[in-house]
Design a protein around this nucleic acid. Structure first.
Lengths: 336, 336
DNA sequence: ATATTAAAGCTAAACGTATCGCTTTTATCT
DNA sequence: AGATAAAAGCGATACGTTTAGCTTTAATAT
């Protein structure tokens, strides 16, 4: 592989000038041409290791997700990647496979790779607080939390308004006469799951409907758990007349079960799903869906991180709550 | 951040000795202890950029996939990552989002990051031949093709025996009396899709059943395309009595459509699916499934790449064809 | 005790780039 | 034309490692 030195020799210019050319400094037009020619002829490529060693910037952003197979996250990832690429950044994508140890280890790995910034969808970090994670503070590597929060955490973060999301959805059941409403929620230690549950309970409170805890089924955000939660709900002695699934996977699992039971939506059971992606798009007749602003979440995270990586520490920590939308379809039966 | 120099100073030893310690050379026990203490006290971390600059090895493997949201690929990815990590390698994961340009660009990106090796699930590379991709040859970066092949390509590769996979599956339809068998295949330019179609046609030939090309529906390996292909098949004037979906996504799309139509499997339509992962696991009653040896494919790819990265170029190119298994369930109706 | 060998440590030179501070060249203004 | 400012180029140094080649120390055998 040829180096900047070879280019200098080929053109008769100094190393410093070549470096200037590469990094966009002032170089005479006729020299620019000669350098360009040399680079082409010698097939020169910048040695990133050397550059990083010198500049202490890797121009790499680490993206750490709970799972790679969850389309909600991979969609976010795709958006981020495209946006950051325009700014000259590359992405190292990591998943911690919903595992506590792995999450910490991957975070260490990213820091060790000297990424310039990190975008994280957290789950277990530090037990409760990411500030406790010393490597992160020492390095002063900017970090933005995506989609989920952590109790007591002082971080920039971009979240959906989960509580109002389920509130608005469940409210639709209520105004259509439903009183026994099942909800399939995620693990309570994940902030989104907790908040979605709160919205559900708030509706009940506001409309003076007692909460039957048997109607609250806890899954783990996986397809299988949605499936069995739905099975549990529909096989109760006094089953709900309506059910909401609170993420894409559990929604799909739940619907799969309902279909198997040959139940019609909304004929036999009213249903609201979550996230308008992949399978939820092809369900027919279409179901009412809580749409999260995926695009906005991803873009905002990327932009905040860019700001921080440029050294702009103003108004830390930034917290955004983005509104969701309820995509109405005929999946709610009017009863009584 | 402290450097190796600081450790040398702290311990009174030379830089070279510290380096030896870090890289597992011979160091006196009492010095080992002092060094360990210094590293701990100064919170020393190896500067990877400097190391890479010197050694010219990044200990990073690039994994390039068509898509991140396809569980078949992300499962492979998870297996690879775990195995390579044990050998001290890290993974940079990339997706080209089923886009030709992106595939080439991401491959360039990986090479530019100086990865020590690449694992690729190819699609369009070079139009037909990856050997045409000059950057790859110049760098002599080892590359192993996973799951898919490319015509005329001289590469190590690990493939499933796709042709016999669909042969065995479709044959089950035939021996149960089916003559009109629909198949939902992927894009013909993808080797797996082509081979799976060949297996389908070979059964027809061997059992002297004419091939009705209207029963061969081409999707793009997506859920939506499986859904509409199934819709097309079932709405024919003379529909098939059995259908096979040839990947996980199209299988799910097809089944979703069948469920919507309130068709029972195998009562109204016989069906064989592909890949025992995620949703296909929870379908109930369970359907017959072509199981690909995901674990073996992933492990073999990783091991071959490890060999190549160690400089072992023997018997190039290695080509493996791994057998699939037909997981039998009651989803095939016996007719006539 | 001495010779021989192995182990442990050290010095110094790279790896390829960016950048500070300086000099030279070129352009601009009066 | 001369003074001034701006643009372009250069030399030298540093970034933090690894490693070849050498020296010193310790261990082993005679």
């Amino acid at each position: 592989m040829s180096t900047i030195k070879d280019i200098a020799q080929y053109t008769g210019l100094s190393i410093a000038t070549i470096s200037k050319y590469i990094n966009g400094g002032n170089v005479l037009e006729r020299n620019r041409e000669r350098i360009a020619e040399a680079i082409d002829a010698l097939d020169y490529k910048v040695n990133l290791a050397a550059r990083i060693l010198k500049t202490r910037r890797t121009m790499i952003v680490g993206v750490l997700l709970p799972s790679l197979t969850v389309p909600f996250f991979s969609t976010i990832c795709a958006i981020i990647e495209e946006l950051l690429k325009k700014e000259g950044y590359s992405i190292i994508l990591c998943s911690y496979y919903d595992d506590r140890e792995e999450e910490l280890e991957k975070l260490r790995f990213l820091l060790n790779q000297s990424v310039d910034g990190i975008l994280l969808v957290p789950q277990y970090i530090g037990g409760e607080d990411i500030n406790a994670f010393s490597e992160l503070r020492e390095r002063k590597t900017p970090l933005v939390l995506m989609d989920r929060s952590i109790p007591g955490c002082e971080c920039d973060r971009v979240l959906a308004d989960n509580s109002n999301a389920t509130y608005d959805a469940v409210e639709q059941f209520v105004v259509n006469g439903h009183k026994r409403i099942g909800i399939i929620i995620g693990p309570p230690e994940i902030s989104t799951a907790y908040e979605r549950r709160v919205g559900y309970e708030r509706v009940h409170h506001d409309y003076a409907i007692p909460v039957d805890h048997a109607l609250i089924r806890v899954g783990d955000y996986s397809i299988g758990s949605g499936y069995s939660a739905m099975s549990d709900l529909l096989n109760m002695e006094n089953p709900p007349t309506a059910v909401i699934g609170t993420n894409h996977e559990m929604t799909m699992g739940a619907i799969t079960y309902a279909y198997e039971r040959k139940m019609r939506i909304p004929g036999d059971i009213s249903f609201i799903g979550y996230d308008e992606i992949q399978l939820t798009k092809i369900i027919n007749p279409p179901i009412t869906i809580v749409m999260q602003p995926i695009q906005e979440i991803a873009e905002l995270c990327a932009r905040i991180l860019l700001r921080r990586m440029q050294g702009d520490d103003s108004s830390f920590p930034l917290v955004y709550r983005l509104k969701t939308n309820l995509l109405m379809h005929e999946s709610i039966k009017r009863i009584r």
